[in-house]
Amino acid sequence: MLPPDEPTAAIACTVNGQAIRTQVPLRRSLVDWLRHDVGLTGSHVGCEHGVCGACHVRVDGLVVRGCLMLAVQADGAAIETIEGAADALTLALQQAFFEKAALQCGFCTPGMILQAAELLAANPAPSRAEVREALSGNYCRCTGYQPIVDAVMAVGAALHAK
């Protein structure tokens, strides 16, 4: 709910392929809007200052910090969240993260997977060092990162084998 004088603006966009037209408070971040208004809680809020990467979503195909974009800026954009990301890379990464225990608490995982998918789309056969570098903007406090690197490498290797 909003107080009566909270400034809002109209936006129209697609979220996971679904067209939406709505009013958003000007100061609501894209990730807060997706989570609290659209109901897609898969992207998380870990810092709100653009450091942790838990809020990652795709905007027009590019992975961005959802806490550093305003919902009003999504007007006209195609937004994708982990819930709607149905590309083969994302699905393969989700399976590999599951199998290799590349998550514990899971709070970082959606952002991490979206970032890894963007890496593999650009570089299907990365080295371990390249994976670590590409994920260096995504904090994980639980795993120590190694199983995450393992999972991304495994998906990369499977791509390569095809």
Partner: peptide
């Protein structure tokens, strides 16, 4: 064995504190 519960989490279908409202 992989953790059964993580199938939800990799899909962004977890339920953390701030994912539910009253």
């Amino acid at each position: 064995l992989p953790r059964a519960a993580t199938a939800r989490l990799v899909a962004g279908r977890g339920s953390y504190l701030d994912d539910v409202s009253a």
